[in-house]
């Protein structure tokens, strides 16, 4: 018969379980993370570009600090984030404005992922070869 084993194998996250949303929820989580990440990049990017107003030397000094493999990987991540955000942004616009958008949202999410993979396959190898062929000089 039913045995009350209360208190023997219990707690885990007293705050409650993580909601198990599907494609829609995770696509939104990623959209927000990438959106905020792009925002902070743009902030820095406006600052470094504005160095050119001080002097070309100052600008070059700042930009040259970016030319190392760590920054090269960072640039790959940035492009990955922008590409996802842009494609998924179009998906969200279609959900809101196209009469069949909500019906096909799941399909459109996988199309976004497919386009993202294709775009990154085109970009990442070229970019990384470029970055790492300059390692240790040049």
């Amino acid at each position: 018969m039913a045995i009350n084993t209360a208190g023997t194998m219990t707690p885990k996250r007293p705050a409650g379980t993580l909601y198990r949303g599907r494609e829609g929820m995770w696509s939104w989580v990623l959209h927000r993370i990438t959106g905020v990440a792009i925002f902070f990049f743009l902030l820095v990017h406006i600052l470094d570009t504005s160095m050119v107003r001080i002097s070309p030397e100052a600008y070059n000094a700042v930009i040259s600090t970016y030319q190392n493999p760590i920054m090269g990987l960072g640039e790959t991540a940035l492009v990955a984030a922008i590409v996802y955000h842009a494609f998924n942004g179009i998906r969200i616009i279609l959900i809101d404005l196209w009469s069949k958008g909500a019906k096909y949202q799941r399909v459109m999410f996988w199309v976004v992922m497919g386009l993202w993979v294709i775009t990154m396959l085109g970009f990442a190898p070229r970019h990384l070869i470029n970055v790492f062929s300059h390692v240790g000089g040049a």
Partner: peptide, 26 residues
């Protein structure tokens, strides 16, 4: 509404909730 579709997935009556919200937005 951020179109996460959690509502549509959760509705026990199978209502296309996010679709209805999009129609009201339009």
């Amino acid at each position: 509404c951020r179109t996460t579709f959690n509502c549509t997935d959760a509705c026990p009556r199978g209502i296309q909730v996010t679709q209805a919200i999009a129609e009201v937005k339009q």
